[in-house]
Design a protein around this nucleic acid. Structure first.
Lengths: 196, 196, 196, 196
DNA sequence: CATGAATGAGCGTTCATTCAT
DNA sequence: AATGAATGAACGCTCATTCAT
C-alpha cells in the first residue's frame, strides 16, 4: 500500500532527473543548502535555463526530496552491509559509527548534502524523526538484551546523532583528518558510554 | 593584537544597536536564520525602514556577529559561574553540560539564535573554532591531570559539542522534555566516556 | 466566400480535437479563462503532454475559437427551436431571453465557458459583433413590423446583451436562484422597454 | 471603527503611489487586466524596475485595490452630484444612467480600468456585491414609494448593471458613438421597464 | 543621527510553443 | 499521427545595500 505510486518514467527523463539531482548534490555540498538555487543547479548541470529543472521536478521540494532519497540510499548502501556483518547490538553500534565516518571519505558530496538538507530544508522533520527512531530502537533493544547499561535512551540517541553529525561536518571540513581513527574514537566513546 | 579595535560609540548609537540586536535575536529564534531578513528585523524592532539597520551595521554579517557576541555572552554568564563552582576537570565538565541544558530553559531565544547562527551563518568559523578550542583545551588539561582517560582529544571535543548542540535543539523543539534530566544524562554519558 | 476553408480531417484527428475542446470547456468553466493553460487542459483530458494540444491546434487562439464554436453551437441548438416555436418578434424576443436563462441550468459548463471567453479572450470581437448584429437585426425588423416601439436599436441591443450576460453570470454564480423566474423577469423587462 | 487604519505617508510616497496607480490605470485601460504586469506598469510609469512597485505596494492585490479605489472615487465624484441634483427615484435612476455614459467620455481610462478590474480581478466580489446592493436598494425604495412598478428587484438590478457595463464597453470601444444619446436611450429603456 | 526612497539582482514557477524522433 | 523533451521569456516578489537629504 503506497500513497503515491512512482510515475513511469522514460529513459531520457530518468537520466535528466539523475543529472539534475547530481548537480544539486554538488551545489549543496559546495555552497550549502541556503545558497542553492535553481540557477546555480542549472549552471552546474550545464543546462541553459532553470525552466528545465521545473520541467522535470514539480517543485523545489520535489527536487530536494529526490536528493535526500539519493543521498540516503548511498549512505544506507554503504553502512548497512557493514552493520549486518557485525554481531550483537554493541558491535553493530560500533560498525554504524565507524562506517559512517568512512562514508564521509567515500562519498563526501552526498554526505555533505545530506547534512545540509537535514539541517535546513523545511520538509525534512520526517527524516530526522526516522533517524532518531532508528537509534533509539537499537539502544532500547540492546538494553533489553543486556548488552547496554542503564541510561535514558532518548537522551543517548540524541547525543549519538549529534556527535555523528558534528564529526561528519568536521571531517568534511578538514580533509586531512584521519576518518578511520576518528571513527574508531567515536565508536570507543559511545561504547564506553553505553557499557553495562 | 586586534585587527579592528572597537569603535567608540555614543550612548544613542549603542542603544540602537542593542535594540536591533535584540530584535534580530527574537526573529532568528522564532523564524530561523534562513527566514531572517532586515525587513523582518526592522518590523520586530518597530523601525520603519531597513535603512536604519544598514546605518548602524556595516553588513548583515556585522549584525549577525554582534548577535553572536550577545548570545554568547548571555550563555557564558550563565554557564561560567556554575563551572567555577565545580572543582576538578571532571566536575567542571559535568557542570558545563548540565548548565548548558538549563540555559536552554532560562534563555530559549538566545540559545535558539545561537544555534541557528552557528549552523547557518556563513561567517562563523571563528566562533566554531573558538568553542572547539575551549573544549579541547579542557580535555587535554584534564588528561594531563589524570582526571580523564586516554582518548583522542579532538575527536572527543567534537563529539561533546555535537551532542550538546543536538540536545539543545531537541530541548528547544520539545519544550515538555525535562532539561535537567537530559542534562544529567548528557553529563553521565560523557563522564563515562572520558573516565580514566 | 471564406478565407480559411476548413481542413479535411481524419476521424482520429476530429475525435482528438473534440476531446481537447471538451477538456478546455471543463477547465474554463471551472477555473475561468485566465487560469486556463495548456497544462491544465492536458491534465483534464488525460493527455501526458501539452505538445499534443499544440499538435492539433495551431494556436491557443485556434483552440479557443473552436471552444467558442462548440459552445455557441450548443447554445444555438438549445435556443433556436424555442425561438422558432414562437410567433412574432415580440414573442421571439421573449423566447430568446427566457430560453437563454434555462440554458444556464441545462449546460452550465458551456455557458460559463462562453462567457469567460467572450469577456476575456483577446480574439473574440467577431463573436461579439455577430451576436450584436443578430439582436440589432431582430429589433430593427420588429420595429419595421410595428411590433416594437421607437428606440435606438443599437443601444437597445447592447442593453439586452449586457443584461443577458449579467444575469447568466448571476445564475451561474448563485445556483439556488430560480432561472425560470429570472428569465421571465428579464423578458418582462425588455418587453416593457421595447413596447410600442 | 476601522480594521486597517490608513498608514501615514510622506509626500514623496504618496506621489509615487499616485504615479504608479495612474500608470496602472493606463495599462489596464489599454491592454486589459490580464495583460497587466508590474513590468508593463513600470515601463508605463518610466520606472527602471518592478522592485519599485513592490516597494510601494505590498502586493499586486494591494495595487489593484488602490486602482479600484481611485477609479471608483473618480466615478463617484462624477455621478454623485448629478444624481443628487435629480429629484425622486425615477429621475435619480435616469441621472445615474445618463451620467454614467458621460463619464465614459470624461474619464475613459478610469472607466475601462474599473470594468476590467471588476470583471477579472480575483479580489473584487465585494465591489460587485456593493454595487448590486446599491441598485437593488434604490429600486426597492422606489417601489415602496410607488415610483416604480412591480418587478423582481434583484433581477432588475442585475439587468441594469449588465446593460450599463455593456454599454460602457461599447462606448469605450467605439469612440465615435454619441455617449449622450446612448445614455438617454439607456435611461429611457429602464424608465419604461420600471414604470408602474 | 536618522530616514525614506530607490536599486537591481535574484528567487521559484508558469507559460505557449517548437521540434526531433 | 503522436510524443516527450526542451526552451526562454515572463511572472510577482524579496532581498541587502546605497544614498541624498
Amino acid at each position: 500500500m503506497r500513497a503515491n505510486p512512482p510515475k513511469r518514467r522514460t529513459f531520457t527523463e530518468s537520466a535528466r532527473r539523475a543529472q539534475i539531482v547530481a548537480a544539486a548534490i554538488a551545489v549543496i555540498a559546495e555552497h550549502g543548502y541556503a545558497a542553492t538555487s535553481f540557477t546555480r543547479i542549472a549552471k552546474q548541470a550545464g543546462l541553459s535555463s532553470t525552466g528545465m529543472i521545473s520541467y522535470h521536478f514539480a517543485n523545489k521540494d520535489d527536487l530536494i526530496r529526490e536528493v535526500l532519497t539519493e543521498a540516503t540510499t548511498v549512505a544506507y548502501d554503504f553502512v548497512s552491509p557493514r552493520m549486518e556483518a557485525a554481531t550483537g547490538y554493541r558491535a553493530k553500534l560500533r560498525a554504524r559509527l565507524e562506517s559512517n565516518m568512512e562514508l564521509v571519505r567515500a562519498h563526501p558530496g552526498h554526505v555533505r548534502a545530506l547534512m545540509e538538507i537535514a539541517r535546513n530544508a523545511p520538509t525534512t522533520p520526517d527524516f530526522v524523526d526516522a533517524r532518531f527512531g532508528l537509534f533509539a530502537g537499537h539502544l532500547r533493544a540492546g538494553q533489553e538484551a543486556g548488552e547496554f547499561g542503564r541510561f535514558n535512551v532518548d537522551a543517548m540517541a540524541v547525543s549519538i546523532i549529534g556527535a555523528i553529525d558534528a564529526m561528519v561536518i568536521g571531517l568534511v571540513h578538514y580533509p586531512e583528518v584521519d576518518a578511520t581513527e576518528f571513527g574508531r574514537e567515536l565508536a570507543d566513546t559511545f561504547d564506553r558510554a553505553t557499557r553495562p
